[in-house]
């Protein structure tokens, strides 16, 4: 079998198995991006979050009731290992400090922005584009709400790929629930696979430009 990407399933599995993806945040976006990538065969993950699992997270985040109170990155590592024991996940239980937000991600192949507040998202995107100019970054914006799936779009500008619902309300003014958060997290993961496999047209051109 040769897939639509002109790669055999073995090629795909080899490439993904040796890849490393950095994920900033292990909430609704990050925990779901992580499990999607692990199931798809990405071999190495670096996940950073300072939070603990709360009861209120269970409506959308990849955690279980018995894990309430546990550090999110440790709970996530446990959950991923149950589904995908071969995945190597580096769990960093700490805050991303302004000015040093990219430190955990200097050696990854793709970075995923999976943070919560708009201000932190903007700071992280700015810092990553400036400090890691050669590493693709996949971000998401507008995950709150129900429905509106037809508004979700994927945009690219340089090394930044965005999954966004430009008309969504902020999470202070609307609900965060599994379906829409999950849609956008899995959409981010889908872009990550494209980037890792070099099947994203824009990414290919950039790679050729570098050679």
């Amino acid at each position: 079998m040769v897939t639509t990407m002109n790669k055999t399933p073995e090629d795909i599995s080899n490439t993904l198995g040796t890849a490393t993806v950095g994920i900033a945040g292990a909430g609704g976006l990050g925990s779901n991006v992580a499990i999607a990538l692990a199931r798809a065969g990405v071999g190495n993950l670096v996940v950073v979050d300072f939070d603990s699992v709360e009861q209120s997270n269970l409506n959308r985040q990849f955690y279980f009731h018995s894990q309430v109170g546990m550090a999110k990155v440790l709970a996530l590592k446990e959950n991923i290992s149950k589904a995908c024991p071969d995945v190597n996940m580096l769990a960093i239980n700490g805050r991303l400090e302004l000015g040093a937000m990219t430190v955990p991600f200097t050696d990854v192949d793709v970075v995923v922005e999976a943070l919560d507040s708009a201000e932190t998202k903007a700071q992280f995107i700015e810092e990553t584009l400036l400090k890691l100019p050669n590493i693709p970054l996949v971000a998401a914006s507008g995950v709150a709400g129900i429905g509106g799936g037809e508004r979700i779009v994927q945009n690219n500008s340089g090394k930044l790929w965005m999954v966004s619902d430009p008309e969504a309300r902020s999470s202070d003014e609307d609900v965060l629930l599994a379906p829409k958060v999950g849609l956008m997290a899995y959409w981010q993961a889908n872009i990550v696979l494209e980037l890792l496999l070099g099947t994203n047209k824009n990414f290919d051109e950039k790679l050729e430009g570098n050679n």
Binding site: G25, G27, G28, L29, G30, A114, L115, D116, S117, A118, E119, K121, A122, I125, A139, A140, S141, G142, V143, A144, S157, L160, M162, S164, D165, P166, A168, R169, S170, S171, D172, D174, L176, V181
Partner: peptide
């Protein structure tokens, strides 16, 4: 000029 506007939630 590109102005990328972020909306809270994650």
């Amino acid at each position: 000029i590109e102005i990328i506007h972020l909306i809270s939630g994650g």
